[in-house]
Design a protein around this nucleic acid. Structure first.
Lengths: 232, 232
DNA sequence: CGCTATGTTGATCCATATCAATAAGTGTGG
DNA sequence: CCACACTTATTGATATGGATCAACATAGCG
């Protein structure tokens, strides 16, 4: 009944190096579920009962406060989320919702913590994962505090272009309204920011982006590996 | 010659549970240095040669981009910094400077990674530390994206008051100009924000803050454990 | 005690949010 | 397959939070 999601999970850095026994322990009570779009998988403040793994589809991590809401990250297969909360046995800090039909694996948090307590390799894999996640949030914070919204958008487009191997034309992987939220601005402002990038050779048609001259856009964006490079 | 800083370092959660042997390995090439105020200890982009430990004094973590600068965190004794960069053997994402005369212990990063590779307990301690740090940055990001500067200041004051066990009057632990930067605003704007909190019972005299009625201030600040509580 | 850095205040400017209206997609059921 | 409804995107007008610039006050510090 649990289909072949084991391999997908196992393929993650987080789980690939642990012993088969420990992995089996983790998977014993794990299960997979299919969710339609726009389902709130977890809500901030809830106890972290499961470590989640996106197997297919797309998940939005967001946060609410005082009737406001902001998107913090987008997760695509195959990746885990809510690892820090699971480890600390602390409530979720973010909520998560499916953006499209998604398959999510759920691994009981107590099992994760139990294996973590005994398996040094697993602990080390978690360290690598958390350190990467930490650095990623720090970069986002620098982006938010040091750049204007126009600069953030410019750099975001350059990062996207890099992800598609520098192709001059590509499709935005987000709905614009969500992109605005991720970048910390309103949808209206994003529309205007796109226009503001026209003088730098950015063409927008729906979700199709064309960057006529990367150098030109870079002259405005001033990308930095210490903010924009995923791997650093 | 290396004085008694061993115990201070050992007392940290990060090191308290590891074996004496492994701790000795870590300390073998470690050393302590005294720095005057305003010394830049590390610069973003530099390779992470040392894990740093603040033994006394005060350290500012900040970042620069395009001639702008922002403070990201303040470190007080006894705490480590640059752990994620050390673990990943990646360049620092933040710069650090002493704010006052400070004693800093420097532990070679390669030793940290070596012990990390063999000592599961140490790896687990690092996980706990990183998970906490990660959650702390996420909270800051929510604060930045969901709140206005007035709300950020109000909540910051409430957090400070909590740190001093709810005393009605306390001293700001930061220079105002740095507080402004931490909160993502200009010094001028911070001045005005303090005035904006007067109607909520906040009195400011230099760095002395008086909160006449916490409830009143909370009605504006709407503090949330998922943003403002250190431990959650 | 004076110098320099920090903090305050006021005037103005600018970026971004908000509000409102329209247009363009997207999906659904007849 | 089209028509309708609903959501998303754009555009314009306006408001406002926050930045900038400039002057002055204040407080540390040598």
């Amino acid at each position: 009944m649990p289909d072949t999601f084991f391999e997908d999970v196992r393929s993650l850095h987080l789980f690939s190096k642990m012993s088969a026994d420990n992995f089996a322990d983790l998977m014993r009570a794990a299960y997979v579920q299919n969710f339609p779009p726009q389902i709130e998988l977890i809500s901030e403040g809830d106890p972290s009962d499961f470590l989640h793994v996106v197997l297919s589809g797309e998940v939005d991590l967001f946060a609410r406060w005082n009737n406001r809401e902001t998107s913090l990250a987008t997760l695509r297969p195959v990746s885990t989320f809510i690892l820090a909360a699971t480890i600390r046995d602390a409530p979720y800090l973010m909520s998560a919702r499916t953006l499209e039909k998604s398959r999510i694996a759920l691994i009981p948090s107590q099992d994760v913590r139990a294996v973590f307590d005994t398996d040094g390799d697993f602990a080390r894999a978690i360290v690598a994962e958390l350190a990467l996640a930490y650095r990623s949030v720090v970069k986002t914070q620098k982006d938010l505090k040091l750049r204007s919204s126009l600069e953030r958008l410019a750099n975001c487009l350059l990062r996207q272009q890099t992800r598609v191997d520098g192709a001059e034309e590509f499709t935005l992987p987000y709905e614009k309204r969500r992109l605005a939220s991720l970048l910390g601005m309103t949808p209206e402002n994003l529309s205007r920011a796109f226009k503001g990038l026209q003088p730098y050779g950015v063409r927008v048609a729906g979700s199709q982006i064309t960057i006529a001259d990367r150098k030109d856009l870079e002259s405005l964006a001033k990308p930095s590996p210490l903010i924009d490079d995923f791997l650093v």
